[in-house]
Amino acid sequence: MSLTADRPNTSAPERGRAERGRTQRLRSGLRGLLDAAVTPLTVDDVLDHFAPLRPAATGLRGRIVSVEPETADAATIVIKPGRDWAGHIPGQYVRVGVDVDGVRLWRTYSLTHGPRPDGHLSITVKAIPEGRVSQHLVRSARPGQMLQLAQAEGDFVLPQPRPGHRIPLLLLTAGSGITPVIGMLRNLFSRADAAAMGEAYDIVLVHSAMSRDEVIFGAELRAHAAAGRLRLIERHTDTDGLLTTDDLLAEVPDLDERLAYACGPAGLLDTLEAFYADRHLTLHTERFRPTVIAGDAEGGTVTFSGSSTSSAERAIEAEGDVPLLDAAESAGVLMPSGCRMGICMGCVLPLTSGAVRDLRNGEITVAVPGETDPAGVPIQTCISAAAGECRIDH
C-alpha cells in the first residue's frame, strides 16, 4: 500500500504557469489598490515624480547635469538620460523636448560626444536670434531641469575601416554644423586604440565660422591638428570671406578621392551638393531643416481654429516660402512640433479648407469642404507653406 497522499498529477511546467498566474493576479490586485489610493493620479504618476529616469517612466527623459559655455552664443548641455536610453553612434542626433514658458517645444540636436564613462549625453546648442528653445538652453537652462528625449536617429556616421585599409575623409562644416563631427572625432580619439584609429582615417576638416572666437570647439580642434590627428583648415568669414568651391579645390586638391561629409547652413549645403553632383561624387549631408525649393511663393491668410489657440479662431498672414509652423509660432500660435524637417510627423495638423504647398517638392495639397474628408487632410506644418487662404484645425 502506498504511503504517499493522493495529489493531482500535474507536471512541473503546469505548476510553474499556475504560480505565475497567481503572482500576476496578486500584482494586479495590489496595483489596483495603490492606484485607488492616489486617485486621480496613478502609481506611475507618483513614481515619475520621484524617479523620473526609471526604465518604466512615461516617455524617455533626461536631467540636465551641467551647462558649459563654449562661445559667447553656444553652450554644451550635459544630460543624464533615463535608463531606457538605447545609446547612439557618433554623428547621430537626438530630438529634445523642452518646456519654455509652460509650452513643450521639440528641437533636434546632434550628440557631441563619443563614449562617456558616466553614461551622460551631450548636445551643443548655438543660440539663434528669436530661437525660443536655443535661447532658453544657452541662456536659462540650469542643472536639475528635466527634458524629454527621443532615441538617437540618423545615418550621418562614419564607415568602419577594414584592417590594413585607410579611409581618406573630407569633413566640411560651418557654424554649429561642427556638432556631429566633434562627436565622431571624440569617439575616434578617446578610444583605447586611438592611435590605430588615427592610422585608419586620413582626415581633412574644413570649418568655417564668422570669426576665430566663434569657432565652437576651436581649442579642441586645433589641439587635434597640432597632434597630427587631422589637417584643419579654418575659414573666418569676417576676414576671409565666404568659402567658395574654388577655395575648396585649392585647399583640398585631392577631394575627388575623399569620402565627404558636410553639415552646416542650408546655403552651404545646397552649394556643395550641386558641386558634388556636377563632379559625379557622393556627398553625405546632415540637415536640420528641409531643402526648400524655389517656386510659387503666393502665401495667404491662414486661420487656426480649435481650443488649443488663445481664442476660438486665430488668423495670420503667412508668406508662401515660410513653413506654416514657423509662421504660426512667430505670431504666437502654440503649435505641436518635433524634428522640424519632415521626418517625425510630430507637427501634423488637419487642413480643413484651402491649399498648402510642400516646400520640398512644390506639390499642392488641397482640402475642399464637402469633397475631402470632413476631418481634414493631414499636413506636416514644418514643411508646408500657405498657397492662398487656408484653414487648419488646431
Rank of each mutant, 00 (worst) to 15 (best):
S2G: 03
T4I: 13
A5P: 10
R15Y: 09
A18I: 08
R31A: 14
L47T: 05
A56R: 14
T58N: 11
G59C: 12
L60I: 08
R63V: 15
I64W: 11
I77V: 14
V78A: 08
P81S: 11
P90H: 10
R95S: 14
V100N: 13
R104L: 08
T108M: 01
T108E: 02
S110I: 03
L111T: 11
T112P: 09
P115T: 11
L121H: 04
S122V: 01
S134L: 07
A150E: 14
Q151D: 02
V157D: 00
P159W: 10
R162A: 15
A174P: 00
S176E: 02
S176K: 00
G183N: 06
M184F: 10
N187K: 01
R191K: 09
A194D: 03
E199L: 09
Y201W: 02
D202A: 10
I203K: 02
S208I: 00
R212N: 05
E214G: 03
R222N: 05
I233H: 13
D246G: 08
D247L: 04
L249P: 00
A250I: 02
R258Y: 07
T282W: 08
H284Y: 13
H284K: 12
R289H: 06
V292H: 02
E298F: 03
F304Y: 13
S308E: 10
S310R: 14
A315S: 15
I316G: 07
P323Y: 01
V333I: 15
M335D: 03
I343G: 00
C344H: 06
V348I: 14
S353H: 04
R357Q: 14
N361V: 10
I364T: 15
T365Y: 04
V366T: 15
A375Q: 06
Q380R: 15
C390S: 11
C390R: 09
R391T: 14
D393M: 09
H394N: 14
